[in-house]
Design a protein around this nucleic acid. Structure first.
Lengths: 230, 230
DNA sequence: TCCATATTTCGATGATAATGGAAACTTAAT
DNA sequence: ATTAAGTTTCCATTATCATCGAAATATGGA
């Protein structure tokens, strides 16, 4: 790694400092692919303008693109970028809430949402802490370690840990939650666990924002497997 | 705390996105006071321009000012801001190193420097980890907890923990080190400990940059008290 | 082949904001 | 009092950049 007494903060910050780009990036925080047009609509700008921003973000390695037919799908480059942006949310003053529906959205996001591809918000933190409590996970510096109990737990839950470990991506990480200011489970394990929650029908996406909701089935499951009341 | 689905990242980022302001802020990272003129010289801009930036940074609560005579002394508002900026250094691509003396500076900074008012760099991380190793500190979420052993250690070291705890500032915190990417000891305790290192003559400032150097006396001390070879 | 849709490239416009010169203000020193 | 130094206010200049209209390119479907 190259270390420098005067690193170039400004360049990176400039990319986040433009309102339209900030909207695009927070939209991509859900970890899913979005088309250029979709992102333009989210930011309320013309497609040309969005294209301009997307090129810039791609050149600076914040996002990547995949062409499929006439669509171009954009995604955050990796989880690190997501963490950086989430981290930024922790320090940025929230904009004023203008409408009732906005405050409802805010509450939904605080309750439960996806951060990149894993679970965040109050639910994400509660689940993670329950796992630590139950001795399924051990906390270290920046990672969680799956204990022996944990191996069994995740196996019972239908996850194949050995195949997850094979992925090039970090296996199990801590991600700082901007609304809770505590850590939740991230990394390949966080992703796999969250995917499984969707598969099992324990949680469902709330349309249009990256909030998620716990289903009846989910509430029962969280209670049974993690002694959680949600 | 107000939570918002679309918090205003852009505003905060914009403050960091201007090269001159970024230089001013990284200069202030040493936690000390600097005059307006000094900061202008660092950023290689005219005093009027610096004044303009400083006003802006002050209005946005990143820095504070104290008037003393005809000088105006500026300082980062608090340690949180320092952490945010240090955090940003972690993700920003370092600028090219242009000269030999710059790379020497870079190495000195990586070895040991002050971050706000506590010790950072390889030395800061090593010292902190030695304390954890020796069971003087316990790691938690975002803080270190001083153990019973630790109470005695710091007392022997000449620090009055009870008076430090009385300060309004957070007692003991983890700060992410941008060159080491590990945590070092921050907060009031980190400050007091570092101040004591200066007092004891274990470390000395390197003129003009925020690097510090370990003295012979310091090397012996670190070895004796923390079994550290520096 | 022709049309519709998604996206980009080009070019012009307009807004924002960093910059520094000139002058004013404040404080210290003599 | 007068001068010098540090800093700010005011103002004009300039550069940057987001934005969008128009046109071009690419792809899919009929």
């Amino acid at each position: 790694m190259l270390i420098n007494p005067n690193p170039n903060i400004a360049e990176v910050a400039a990319l986040l400092s433009e309102p339209s780009r900030a909207i695009i990036l927070t939209t991509l925080l859900d970890g899913r692919f979005h088309t250029a047009g979709e992102l333009a609509r989210m930011a309320a700008i013309q497609p040309q303008t969005a294209s301009h921003h997307l090129t810039k973000l791609e050149q600076n390695n914040l996002i990547t693109m995949e062409k499929h037919g006439r669509y171009r799908y954009y995604q955050l480059v990796n989880e690190d970028i997501a963490q950086i942006i989430e981290g930024f949310l922790t320090i940025s003053r929230p904009a004023e809430i203008r409408s009732f529906s906005q405050s409802k959205q805010a509450k939904a996001l605080q309750r439960a949402r996806t951060c990149y591809d894993h679970l965040a918000g109050n639910l994400g933190v509660m689940v993670t802490e329950a796992m630590v409590q139950a001795d399924y996970l051990d906390k270290t510096d920046k990672d969680f370690i799956v204990t022996e109990h944990g191996e069994r737990f995740f196996y019972d839950f239908g996850l194949d840990l050995s195949s997850i470990k094979k992925k090039r991506r970090a296996f199990s990480r801590m991600c700082l939650d901007w609304s809770e200011r505590k850590h939740h489970l991230a990394g390949a394990l966080g992703c796999a666990f969250t995917t499984q929650l969707f598969e099992l029908g324990w949680i469902e996406r709330v349309p249009s924002i990256r909030a998620v909701e716990v289903t009846q089935k989910g509430a029962a499951g969280f209670k049974k497997y993690l002694s959680l009341d949600v």
